[in-house]
Design a protein around this nucleic acid. Structure first.
Lengths: 216, 216
DNA sequence: GTCGGCAAAATTGTTGACAATCCTGTTGGC
DNA sequence: GCCAACAGGATTGTCAACAATTTTGCCGAC
């Protein structure tokens, strides 16, 4: 699943359409619940309708768009309840990754985590929520990578794609980075200490607080 | 050749192809790593190639088939390592569901679980591994359903589809049902006791033993 | 004035044909 | 005899046109 989506290389028409559409949706250029008419998209992206169609099927299985038979496609809106449910799944899956990472990661990789933690602290101290948000994503990705759990990684990639909007909004909330930071540092610390149970607990605590934040 | 239009059904061709293909793969009618040629499938199922194509894209995102650009589709073979990784994900996700079910389930639903547990005990006592395996699936499904966690349910559905073969093999292993049974009963007991932490721990213990069993 | 049905427009689903790509077996040169 | 280039066949990717379905605007009946 999740064939590589590299917008840079010259790929097939369908994959190009897929990349463009995904990018447009993730950037929020498509209004929530906006109708996605195959003909319009085909003209807009300079590909044929069949390619757009295939791309839409792919995106539907990723949960980014909703397809109703004979009635067309729309960008899927993620309600707050869904965001909470998704984050609950993230909670356990990232917990698994963190626990495995605490056991599997190399010393070099642990050093990378330490570095990331320092960069995040600096971003918060400097009051740069966007940079912090990016480092945040980076940290989560790295933990997944270091865990070697590719199945969980794939599932999380899909889940996160549905949350981009909510996550971004959350990062801009005043006071949120400070709290988030300390939770993240706790995760890093537990992994470096090679304590899988503590790492899992720390991740859960963190995402638990994210869930609380969503519920406003 | 006998492309009967089936006037009564009116089902969509793609979804029909998808259902047939999935069924064929799940039943093991397709040899492992067998090449899936779009033309052959189209003729075999009495639909057009485009429909088969769409179905294959869907199945690829479900992880049942593997699609290589310009080179076709094959049924994906799940190695033992992958089966373990998948089960690790099931472990945490079903743990989440069990914990939520322990809180959310109605009294009536708890009664259903009790019933299921008794049926499973009987199946083991009667030495009917197939019946037991079916009840086993039923139990897992019910717990997911009772949890109300639709996101996790969707993820698990996808993961389980990839494991059907391994799960079935496991069920037929001598001595396995006995051990499995006691673990399942522990899960049921914890949920009925409305103890989410114990329920999660019991599910994890169970799937942990499944992982051990896979590693032979 | 409102409701039910009807026809036209818009949109998706499907089809068959065409082009691009990849694998295979063969041939020619060294 | 072995390796590289080359045709041949097979398979996927793409395209434009056609059919089926749904939605929408409209008209007439009550």
């Amino acid at each position: 699943m999740a064939k590589e989506a590299r917008p840079g290389t010259g790929e097939q028409a369908k994959q190009l359409a897929l990349a463009k559409l995904r990018q447009a949706i993730l950037r929020g250029e498509m209004a929530p619940a906006q109708r996605l008419v195959e003909n319009e998209l085909a003209e807009q992206f300079g590909v044929t309708r069949a390619s757009v169609r295939a791309a839409l099927i792919d995106l539907a299985s990723e949960g980014l768009v909703e397809r109703i038979p004979n009635r067309g496609s729309r960008v899927r809106v993620v309600t707050v309840e869904e965001a909470v449910a998704i984050t609950e799944c993230r909670m356990v899956l990232e917990g698994l990754c963190a626990a495995k990472a605490a056991v599997e990661a190399s010393e070099e990789q642990l050093a990378q985590l330490t570095e990331l933690g320092e960069a995040m602290s600096k971003a918060v101290a400097d009051g740069e929520p966007v940079t912090y948000s990016e480092l945040n994503n980076e940290l989560h990705s790295r933990i997944q990578e270091f865990s070697g759990q590719q199945v969980a990684e794939g599932l999380l990639e899909r889940l996160n794609a549905q949350l981009v909007k909510h996550r971004f909004q959350l990062a801009l909330r005043p006071g949120r980075p400070q709290r988030s930071l300390s939770e993240h540092l706790a995760v890093i610390e537990a992994i470096i200490a090679r304590d899988p149970q503590a790492a899992e607990a720390a991740v859960r605590a963190h995402l638990g607080s994210v869930i609380e934040a969503y519920r406003d």
